[in-house]
Amino acid sequence: MAAPVGFMKAGDRYVKDPDRRVQEAIKMVFDKVEELGGARQTLCWPHEYNFDLPVKQTNGDTARRRPHYSAIGRLKHRDVVV
């Protein structure tokens, strides 16, 4: 299974992507999950404010677009080092 956007696989753990802009965007998602109480509310937030989040493309590059529910859920449920 591939690492979620914002993270890279390091052995059996996930570590932050070295790109600071990606790190800040992903931290904002975690902060919003804590503030708003769940993935559904967090998903509504970027759509309401026309905010794009980083996504991994199939070639490994990072692009930006509105998130899907599954992307927020994958971030929320990973064993990550934040």
Rank of each mutant, 00 (worst) to 15 (best):
K9S: 01
V82R: 15
P46L: 06
H68F: 02
Q23K: 10
R20M: 02
T62W: 03
D52L: 10
V82E: 15
K76V: 14
L53E: 04
A2E: 12
R66G: 07
F51H: 03
V81R: 15
A10C: 07
A39P: 15
A10Q: 13
A71Y: 13
D12F: 04
A2T: 12
V15I: 14
G73P: 08
P46V: 05
L36C: 08
R74A: 05
V33A: 08
V5C: 14
A3T: 09
D52M: 12
S70Y: 12
A3R: 07
V15R: 07
Q57W: 02
K16S: 12
T62K: 12
V22N: 11
V22P: 13
L75D: 12
K9Q: 03
E35S: 10
V80C: 11
L43N: 09
D61W: 02
T42R: 06
F30L: 11
T58I: 01
E48C: 09
A10S: 11
N59I: 00
M1S: 15
R20E: 08
E48Y: 04
G73F: 11
G38E: 06
E34Q: 12
G37Y: 01
M28E: 04
K9H: 01
R21K: 10
E24V: 00
V33P: 07
D12R: 04
R21F: 02
Y14C: 00
V15M: 10
A25T: 03
V15G: 00
R78M: 14
G6I: 03
V33G: 08
R74F: 11
I26T: 04
R78T: 11
M1L: 13
K9P: 06
F51T: 03
L36H: 03
S70G: 05
D61P: 01
K32H: 06
A63P: 01
G38V: 13
R40C: 05
P18R: 05
V22I: 14
Y69E: 08
M8V: 13
R78H: 13
V22F: 10
K56C: 01
I26F: 08
V22A: 05
G37Q: 05
Y69M: 09
L75S: 07
R65H: 09
I26R: 07
N50K: 01
R40H: 11
R21H: 07
K9N: 00
D79A: 15
E48D: 14
T58C: 04
D79H: 13
A3V: 05
E24A: 12
M8F: 07
Q23G: 10
K32M: 10
R74Y: 13
D17H: 10
P54V: 03
M8Y: 09
G11C: 04
G37A: 09
D19T: 07
V82A: 15
Q23V: 10
A3D: 05
A39S: 14
K16N: 12
V29L: 00
G60W: 03
V55G: 08
V5M: 09
G38T: 08
A3E: 04
F30E: 09
Q41F: 02
H68N: 06
K16L: 14
L53V: 01
R74V: 10
E48G: 09
P67F: 04
R78E: 12
L75Q: 09
Y14E: 05
W45K: 02
E24Q: 08
V5S: 11
Y14F: 14
W45E: 11
R65K: 15
A2C: 06
W45P: 06
